[in-house]
């Protein structure tokens, strides 16, 4: 059979065009801007104008200035904590969902995902009012007699950012964990029972390891979203809650130093790509098919 010979020329041109577009669109709209950004990180600013001479100055400044590396490191730790707390809270919730029958399972899942449909800024305001000095959290703690007087522990500092990011990002952790739990064939759990395992043994030896891919993608999701966020730290972080995202934001705003901002973004992008790669590596199921 002479395959290509039978396809009309017009059709072949058309399919060629589609192929070119499929490759061109991501290149033009994703890779080219990223490349331009990377280029900018080698420029510098002199009295408000960008100097288009290549230099490693921005990177040297990032690594040598005592301000940036500690904030960079603290932000990574903060976001790892957010990811860890999200996983610890989301796993039991997702597990509970999978124990529900049919309709209830998806109804409750939708309910947990509803916050994703709300405006990000409004959610931050709402959480800020919960965490604030006269907020719900303080009133509850005082009312229960746990605190003598309202505490400033939860507002305008790193704790506030941690709590707010955790609350905002939990839905992103629940979904992949739920999906990976749901994909585990029930017959494997029955087989484990049948071989004499207790409920806890079945969970630890079968359910948990088989859901780890979901946990890995949940963790990398949350981490990536948290580390790229500058709005939340800006709104609930106050002066002490200074994150890398805020520094980055200020370079493009008040400081008006795009080249340096671009260099900082490159540093952040390296971390994000690393997180995604790690998530992908562990997110792959070992020998999926049964």
């Amino acid at each position: 059979m002479s395959g290509t010979g039978t396809i009309p020329l017009a059709e072949r041109r058309w399919s060629l065009l589609v192929t070119v577009l499929a490759f061109a669109l991501p290149v033009v709209f994703v890779l080219v801007p990223l490349a331009i950004f990377l280029g900018y990180s080698f420029f510098s600013v002199d009295q408000g104008t960008i100097v288009h001479t290549l230099s490693l100055g921005n990177y040297v400044r990032f690594f040598t200035d005592p301000i940036f590396l500690p904030v960079f490191w603290n932000t990574i730790v903060l976001c790892l904590s957010v990811a860890a707390i999200c996983i610890l809270l989301a796993y039991p919730a997702a597990y509970f969902l999978t124990t529900l029958k049919g309709r209830w399972r998806y109804a409750l899942l939708m309910l947990l995902l509803v916050p994703l449909l709300m405006s990000y800024v409004i959610k931050i305001y709402a959480i800020r009012s919960i965490l604030g000095l006269n907020g719900f959290l303080n009133k509850a703690l005082v009312g229960l007699g746990i605190l003598q007087e309202p505490s400033t522990l939860f507002v305008f500092n790193m704790n506030a950012i941690l709590l707010t990011l955790t609350l905002l990002l939990i839905p992103f952790a629940i979904l992949p964990i739920f999906l990976s739990l749901e994909r585990i064939p029930q017959v494997l759990l029955r087989a484990s029972d049948d071989l004499g395992a207790s409920g806890l043994q079945t969970f630890l030896r079968i359910t948990l390891p088989l859901s780890l891919p979901g946990v890995a993608s949940a963790a990398s999701f949350v981490f990536v979203l948290a580390i790229g966020d500058f709005l939340t730290p800006q709104m609930v972080g106050g002066i002490s809650g200074f994150t890398f995202g805020r520094i980055l934001y200020s370079q493009f705003g008040t400081a008006y130093n795009w080249p340096f901002g671009a260099a900082l973004s490159v540093a952040l992008a390296v971390v994000v790509i690393a997180a995604i790669l790690v998530g992908e590596r562990f997110g792959r199921n070992r020998g999926t098919a049964i």
Partner: peptide
């Protein structure tokens, strides 16, 4: 899990994350 019976399931139900020895030894190791 207390019954002294074991089942060979229709689609085998082997644990995909365990090796052959991990699967075979499962009943003893629990």
């Amino acid at each position: 899990n207390r019954r002294p019976f074991n089942t060979v399931f229709q689609d085998y139900a082997l644990f995909p994350h365990l090796t052959v020895s991990g699967n075979v030894g499962y009943g003893l190791s629990v």
